[in-house]
Design a protein around this nucleic acid. Sequence first.
DNA 1: GTCTATACAGCGATAGAC
DNA 2: GTCTATCGCTGTATAGAC
Lengths: 216, 216
Amino acid sequence: MTKKRAVSPAGPAPATQRILEVAEQLVQTRGFNGFSYADVAAELGITKAALHYHFAGKAELGEALMARYSSRFEEALAELDRHHLDAADKVDGYADIYTDVLRHRRMCLCGMLAAEYDTLPTSMQREVVAFFEMNEVWLSQTLEEGRNEGTLAFAGPPIGVARTIMSSLEGAMLVARPFDDIARFERVVDQLTSGLKTRPEDAGGSGRPGSVRVPS
Amino acid sequence: MTKKRAVSPAGPAPATQRILEVAEQLVQTRGFNGFSYADVAAELGITKAALHYHFAGKAELGEALMARYSSRFEEALAELDRHHLDAADKVDGYADIYTDVLRHRRMCLCGMLAAEYDTLPTSMQREVVAFFEMNEVWLSQTLEEGRNEGTLAFAGPPIGVARTIMSSLEGAMLVARPFDDIARFERVVDQLTSGLKTRPEDAGGSGRPGSVRVPS
DNA sequence: GTCTATACAGCGATAGAC
DNA sequence: GTCTATCGCTGTATAGAC
């Protein structure tokens, strides 16, 4: 048995992983047009040329970033589903995912890329839209579930409420970052979700049952 | 009397105006890091060097852009106040300002710059925050007014609701643009505002009394 | 107020050695 | 898998003529 990990034989090499982590942080804080190969290389102590070995171009790096982010996000949603929470708690868990991103002083990756949408490679544009659609589908289903089980109450089709919640969370992150104020974000989250719930919220916003976060 | 306009003697020269208009459109669609002096010059059929006569550097151009946008926005809010609307209609008018921006396939200038916040010159960073604060102040006052006159109803301090509305509108624009779907934005607006109003909304979203827009 | 010309830094990207 | 070296291009900015 070699030094290479025996389990999960697939998956990116450690070097590739570290590149993605650094690039992700840069895009989420500075934007896709606000970072360069030189930034990533400097942070990792390697050269720009080495990066091109792992990702042919900036577009490919961007696509890998989004694929990773989306699948991580999807996994976090699946994890919420696995916890047998009621829909009201799932919605809270959903908002917590966003809160955790903001806690790392980051913007949602796809929210950031949505701002830069017109300048992105078309492959990345498609992934931005797909990310939002994935969010909407999960939220719609959860909202409908909540209405059926009686933990959530709202008027009209779930998709409308889902779109309001998702885009409002993106906007709350967008605005909270210049103020460097997580509490501002959390208050907006409470405003948005408290109107949906059929039972009163217990005081503390943290430590909810089955809290799930998208790593880093 | 010369050819120069006899009235409103102050104000930027026509050439400067046109530069600002082109640059504004570019920033609102591509971001501050997504456009260049060359883009502006090409659009106007002049050279990059000519631009530097009007604005020493990109930072100065950016500051002028924000000052203009903020004062235009503030004027639109003052115009809403001048129409003797009730607060519910003022909130609708406020949302209409955003809708008109989106109709021009643009993101709110300061919403766009909020995404790029970490990469902006500090002078521009301050203006981004000031813009959001100005919005919040006006909205808070209007919400309180509406609660006093009975056209609006909401729980808690107005500032909390104001922040939710403003940041949610920013987010709804951010997300609607990749979908190139104004209706999506308008439905979110309805969701956000209908819960505030004490009387039902008349059907059509357009042509409300005293509709005001921020030009371009 | 606009031009030509140019400086100079940074960008994404490639070739080829190790 | 990482390096050195370099290419071609674009970016912001300046000098000086008109």
